[in-house]
Write a protein that binds this DNA or RNA. Sequence first.
DNA 1: ACGTCGTGTCATCAT
DNA 2: GCATGATGACACGAC
Length: 691
Amino acid sequence: MSLIPRTSVFTFQSSVHCLHVLRCLDEQRRTEILCDVTVVVENKSYRAHRSVLAACSDHFRSRLSGHAGQGLVITLPEEVTVEGFEPLLQFAYTAKLLFTRENIVEIHNCAEILGFHNLDKACFDFLLPKFFDHGKTIPRIQRKLCCKTKCCQRKSLQAKSQSGSDGDEQEVDHGDAEPVLSQAGQENGSARSAETQSQNSVSVSESPDACGPSCPDEHAGTGYGLCPKYRKFQMACGKERCCLEDCGPTEAAAPPAQTSELCASPCLPCTSKENNNGAGEPCPRNLPETGGWPENEVTPLVNCLPCTPESSTSTGFLATADLSHVQPAPTPSSDIPDCCPVGPVEGASVVEGDEVELGCGGIEGPVNIDPVDSALPNLVQEGGGDRSSVEREVAEHLAKGFWTDPSPSQAESLLLDPEGQAVLGKAADFHWLKHLDLNASTGDCPFLRDLGEGVQLPEEFRTGAQPEKSPCISSVNSGENSDSDSEGDSESYNSERAREMQLPFPVERISSLSRNDFQHLLRLQSLTREQLDFVHDVRRRSKNRVAAQRCRKRKQECILGLEGEIHKLRGEREQLVEEREQLKRRKVEAMRSLSELCHKVCSEATLSPEQLEFLAQFSSPDCPIHALMSSSPSPDLSLRFSLTLQDQDPTAKSHGPVLSFPDPPRQPWPHPLLNAAPWISTAPPPSLTSA
DNA sequence: ACGTCGTGTCATCAT
DNA sequence: GCATGATGACACGAC
């Protein structure tokens, strides 16, 4: 069927669509298993499940209620067209709405006629003006931010870390240049084909937390699904897994709740079964009723790609559009005001069919999206030729906006290199988002609105001075919400892995249990070798993480303690220095007093030579005693007492000479002078008594 | 572009 | 021998 030649896909988050159920139902619908109703639209009939239709549409619910049996045929009103109904039917089963500028109105009408739930009116209110307002015919696709920084980190980490060292892994996991879709094709070689066919789809999940850190699909296709933090371990253990495992059968087998936890949005991972549909076939889930999307038509997004900028934007878009002829061009964004970004949209999956008119501002430049030739490597490789500014813009986005290094060479290498593609997502420069008309409030944007009340467009965007980053993406990539990413990242990743391995107990117990309890738990559970390895590794990392935190805390406390001790010692030192200066001042004062006393004694009393000599020991040179001593020398005393003047301290020089005993007096105590100097204390000095 | 900081992980050793 | 804790070293992202 001619399905939406120029298509955009918006993936709406809806709790109604249980991913798992949807997956199964859509599979059944396509294979007409358990289909109990036939819907006739115009001249076409569609097999479906009445329960699904009734759940999604008031019209169907009213018409199906009270009817039983398998042969029920419902003919829709004439107002309902195939063009409008098919996307709605697809939406009912996949929660993905594929629309184009041409059919968006038709879809809107059909949705209103059929009373489709979960197609927020605001979506149309938001989309329609974007497509048709201002007299512009350029569909504007609002991007919704979805992925979390950790996703980006992980991918970029993997991209980085795996560069050069994970060649094998890359070959296995990201051998296909199309990361977005690789998830769908990891099970077998045919998956690659599916990816190739799906390359013209841009997938973006709609919920910020739709694809959290643990979103397995983020790894899909890229093969960078491994949490970089564990890459070494994973590599060592040979556990490298691509989305094959992350988004593959294991996840499909996961309970819906878990699946939705991984990807809350209806980004349904392709199951292995789906992927086994055959080479060259896109994921059946994403296929229209005809069994596959026409080559030039849209392939719905793939699962949770949008988790990360890489997947959601760069890779997603890269995968979608055949930009092989598009070259990065220095086309200023300003040159194309209100240009609709071609890139993938967070919260909305943009699937570009072939000949998608991306022209903006009157410039209509079809971007030929060949599902077959739209391999990424061609993106920048080939020359430009005649390309519209839009194409150049797209190329610029790809070349500059999606990776850090805008240099074409590196961009090319990135495109050519699977690991490089993961790096694409690392880029936070979504400058092309400036073309979005984001003047509308977040409330007007159903995708932004889904992000929660806390999401606010930056002032630049509200005022028109739009920065390089998309408000939707910026909040995700800016790391604003990544405060608790680290641990949450690990835990979510472990949880994801635990689900993949179908661990019979919650991963939280691995690290929370005591040693005995943990071993007891392992004894109770008959785990496979892989599960045991995983469990032990999780426990080891968890313990070590806590130990490292303790260690660092102790180290930090030790540093703080040492700093405090240094501060304290410095204070003590200053106090001691001050005390020393004070003692020096007192000493000088004492010497001055003594000299004065000497002057007084010499002037008032008549002393014998012995008395003079004794006093001279404790007097300064300027004391008259010295003058008297020189006039009447006493050889005996001079022998017994050597009076020396010396500087005891460099600082003491300024205070004058100080008398001291170079040697302890050998004369036995009491000194004979004591009799001559009775005012002197009879208490022997300690030095003398000890001697 | 570069340095710093925080964190997780791994390897190693000690208990 | 194994589990666990401590710690240095490394990688990585964020700033």
